[in-house]
């Protein structure tokens, strides 16, 4: 049998098993869920082995004699001393190195890219110099760089930052600024929610498209047969749980 046809049956079965959770938690879903964790971990192990052991350690050392790479290998091995209680403290050296490098790298880059650059992009000129028209104030909302949008972004960033600034009590004019910040936050949360819902819908459409494709006779109609098997199993499980006396506890 063609590997694609077997694949279609496996993919359809696993998809339907996961969808069965919409009815209720059941053994078919748990089976697919645990398989997902197993396959994902296996995949990550293989990819990490290929990237780290083969391409970052073995090949550079054997082919290019980059012996300095033995230092990170030694630091990495120190991590594994956590399994030897008497030597577990050695793993602190590995964590100290990672955290130290991470913290050191983070300070200048965060200040430059995520603080100064963001402030620079927030405080922009309100008037634009357009050739032929001279100095203008752009009202075009659809252009994120227009003058009116520059003002809105400035108000949004300032008010949200003020809302999270707790060293000053939010009262009087401060209360109004903080409430403006809350409104901006609500709009952003709503937008993020809507965006996430649509992303999930897109995935759902993708899965349903696959199920429709696999209902084709050329694959042996796995969608139809496996949907029947899934529904039948759920009915059988439901009947069995009804006939069994409830567990005491």
């Amino acid at each position: 049998m063609d590997a694609t046809i077997i694949g279609a049956w496996v993919a359809t079965g696993l998809t339907l098993f996961i969808f069965s959770f919409l009815y209720k938690d059941n053994p078919l879903f748990k089976l697919a869920e645990n398989l997902y964790v197993g396959v994902s971990v296996g995949y990550t192990i293989v990819k990490t082995y290929d990237t780290v052991i083969v391409h970052l350690i073995w090949k550079p050392i054997v082919e290019n004699q980059e012996w300095t790479l033995l230092i990170p290998v030694a630091i990495g091995l120190l991590m594994l001393t956590r399994y030897v209680p008497k030597a577990a403290w050695l793993s602190r050296y590995a964590f100290a190195f990672i955290v130290g490098v991470g913290a050191g790298l983070a300070i200048p880059r965060t200040v430059s890219s995520f603080i100064l650059k963001q402030i620079e992009d927030t405080i922009r000129p309100l008037l634009m110099l357009v050739p032929g028209e001279g100095v203008t104030f752009s009202w075009n909302l659809m252009n994120p760089a227009s003058s009116v949008n520059v003002i809105i972004v400035l108000i949004g960033v300032s008010s949200v930052l003020f809302y999270f600034f707790f060293s000053v009590e939010h009262k009087g004019p401060g209360k109004m600024v903080a409430r403006t910040g809350v409104m901006f936050l609500m709009i952003a949360f709503g937008a993020a929610f809507g965006y996430t819902v649509m992303a999930r819908m897109s995935l759902l459409i993708g899965r349903l498209t696959d199920l429709i494709e696999y209902s084709d006779p050329s694959y042996g109609r796995p969608t139809l047969w496996l949907a029947l098997v899934t529904i039948g199993t759920l009915i059988a499980l439901s009947l069995r749980s009804r006939s069994e006396p409830p567990e005491e506890g």
Binding site: G104, A106, I107, V111, I115, P144, I152, V160, I187, Y195
Partner: peptide, 25 residues
Amino acid sequence: ILNVLNASVRRAILIGVSLGAVALS
């Protein structure tokens, strides 16, 4: 909404989180 309002909030949160990250570092 996504390019202007949402972007301004994300920028404010990013600035706040970054200040925290620098302090923690």
